[in-house]
Amino acid sequence: MSDFGFHLAFWSLAAMTIGGASMIVVSRNLIHAVIWLVLSMLGIAGLYLTLSAEFIAVVQVLIYVGAISVLMLFAIMLTPRAERDNSQHIKTAGPAGVVVIMVMIATMWVAIDTDWGAVREAALTEQARLIGESLIKHYILPFEIGAVLLTAALVGAIALARQDDEDAAVHAASLQAELDDDGSVDPVDVVDPPLPTDGEAST
């Protein structure tokens, strides 16, 4: 683990991960923030590869880049543009910074100061098979609970996000009220304004 190629991989991937994460803090646009998150996740997947954990790395790309980020973008698209602001909370940013710096000092100190013991040279091979076997033998109960949790999350998300026809009518009315307020239409938000009814048209 000391040759030049490994060093190059580790430092560039670490820079990618931390850089992407820092850009989330800075960027004001929520969509940009999600794209920086994707960059950071890809960096972490690469770091898993340097730790020779291929299975976890591929799962990371599959779940985070392919699914979770797309889900976030979808959720952002369903809210109007005014809600895509990713700025900081002015009042809490200061105290949050102090707390975070204290946590950082503590975790770094633990990470560097502790003697972590033996360093193993050989990596785990055939991880997919091993993980699969231990999931259905040793960890069968957590596995089942995880399955139930995912099902519950699926049902819960659908139940929450479902829009009844009445709600839809109220929603459309409120959007119409917003449009009346400022008179401007966001070109990206594809919201068809309710067309005038017959009564209005005749007056």
């Binding site: 820092s22 803090v25 700025s87 949050a96 975070v100 710096i101 950082m104």
Partner: peptide
């Protein structure tokens, strides 16, 4: 820590 800061400070 970066994630913690984002979770604490974003609106």
């Amino acid at each position: 820590c970066i994630g913690f800061f984002i979770a604490l400070s974003k609106k």
